[in-house]
Amino acid sequence: MPFSYQEAVSFYQENQKPVPENFIVDYIKWGGMPQRFVFDNESDTKKYLEDVFKGIVEKDIYKRDSEIEKYKFSAISGYILSNAGKEFSAENILNFYNQKNEGNKKTLEKKTIYNYIEKLEKAYLISRVKRFNISGKEILKTIEKHYAIDTGFRTLNTNLVNYEDTFFLENVIYNELILRGYSVYTGKTYKGEIDFVAIDGNKKCFIQVSYLMPGEETIKREFDAFKPIKDASPKYVLSLDKIDLSHDGITHINIEDFLLHKKDLFIS
C-alpha cells in the first residue's frame, strides 16, 4: 500500500522538511506513493507516477498474459481509474469503448471487461467494493464500485480533479479504512445509499463523506442520508470542515483529523 496521510506527513518530519502548505489537497490529488515525495513540482511527480503505473502494467499484467489486447486494456483501465468511486456499470464501459471506436470491427465484450478488471485488482491497482444491504444485514454479491489503490493513479486518468464531487475524498477514506483493518462496503438503504459501512468482526459503523458543507442544505443532505437506517450502530459524516457539525446523534469528524488519528471511529 502507498503511504497513508499520516505516514506521508511523518516522512517530511523525519527528513526535517516542512510539510507543504495545504498538504491534504496535494495528497488527495497525487496520492501516497513514497518515492513521489522527493519531487518538488507536479510535472516530476506526474512523470514518476506514469513510470510506476507503466512498470506495474508491463511487468505484472502484459508480461504474464501475452494474449491481452493492449489497446483494449488501456481503454478499460483508463475508464475504471478515471471513474473510481462511481457506481460500476459494464454497460457504460461498453458504450464508451464502442463509441470511441465506431467503425472498428473489434468490438468489446463484457467478459473482457471483467477479465481485465480482475487483472487490475490482482496487480494492486484497484480495489473492488461490494454492497452491504443495511436493512437485510447481508453482503450482496455484485461489485458496485472500484477504488484506486493510490489516488495519484486516478489523477493520471482524469482530465479535471474536482474535489467537490467527493470521489477523490471517498477514495482516500476507503484506503484509510482498509489500512486500519476494516472490511469496507458501500451501504444500500431502501431510499438510496451510504458511502461506507465499516465492519470489524460483529461491530460496524456507517460513514458519509463530503467535501465541505457550507450551508444548511448540504448539511441536511449528508446527515439525512442516515434517516432510513434503524440500526443503532454509530454514524459519521467526514468532511474538510473545521467546525464540529455533529448533531442528532450523528458525529462529524474533520477528514484531516481522522487521517492523522487525532479523532477515530467508534464501532458497535
Rank of each mutant, 00 (worst) to 15 (best):
165 D>C: 01
206 F>V: 15
134 I>Y: 03
30 W>Q: 06
97 Y>H: 12
161 V>F: 15
175 N>H: 08
154 R>H: 06
108 L>T: 04
213 M>T: 14
26 D>G: 06
169 L>W: 10
172 V>E: 09
131 R>D: 05
189 T>S: 10
246 S>L: 01
253 I>S: 08
236 Y>H: 04
63 K>Q: 11
195 D>S: 02
1 M>G: 00
168 F>K: 01
211 Y>A: 09
69 E>Q: 13
38 V>N: 03
258 F>V: 10
189 T>Y: 06
167 F>C: 08
29 K>E: 14
12 Y>P: 12
116 Y>Q: 13
93 I>H: 11
123 A>K: 06
176 E>C: 08
116 Y>T: 15
209 V>P: 13
153 F>Y: 09
207 I>R: 10
264 D>F: 05
117 I>G: 08
249 G>V: 01
18 P>N: 08
61 I>V: 02
4 S>P: 00
24 I>D: 04
236 Y>T: 10
210 S>H: 10
142 T>F: 15
264 D>M: 03
17 K>S: 05
191 K>H: 05
101 N>Q: 11
170 E>C: 03
1 M>L: 00
183 S>P: 02
208 Q>P: 08
232 A>H: 07
253 I>L: 12
30 W>L: 07
71 Y>H: 08
217 E>D: 15
151 T>K: 02
21 E>F: 04
25 V>Y: 15
15 N>F: 07
152 G>H: 01
31 G>P: 09
90 A>N: 15
185 Y>I: 04
22 N>F: 07
162 N>G: 09
130 K>N: 05
234 P>G: 06
11 F>P: 01
2 P>D: 02
95 N>M: 13
140 L>G: 09
32 G>F: 14
47 K>R: 05
195 D>P: 00
3 F>R: 02
7 E>F: 04
259 L>N: 06
51 D>S: 15
46 K>Q: 09
38 V>I: 15
11 F>C: 05
215 G>S: 15
99 Q>L: 14
267 I>V: 14
79 Y>I: 13
129 V>H: 02
210 S>N: 08
121 E>Q: 14
42 E>A: 12
122 K>P: 08
144 E>P: 02
151 T>L: 12
36 R>L: 12
20 P>W: 00
99 Q>F: 14
219 I>M: 05
83 N>M: 14
5 Y>I: 03
59 K>D: 07
76 I>S: 09
158 T>Y: 02
3 F>Y: 02
257 D>C: 06
176 E>H: 12
113 I>H: 10
238 L>V: 01
250 I>G: 00
136 G>L: 04
52 V>E: 12
132 F>S: 05
76 I>R: 09
244 D>A: 03
84 A>Q: 12
98 N>C: 04
247 H>I: 04
190 Y>E: 10
41 N>I: 07
49 L>D: 10
228 P>A: 12
5 Y>K: 03
247 H>N: 07
232 A>C: 11
255 I>L: 15
105 K>I: 13
110 K>N: 11
102 E>I: 14
238 L>P: 00
108 L>S: 12
198 A>P: 02
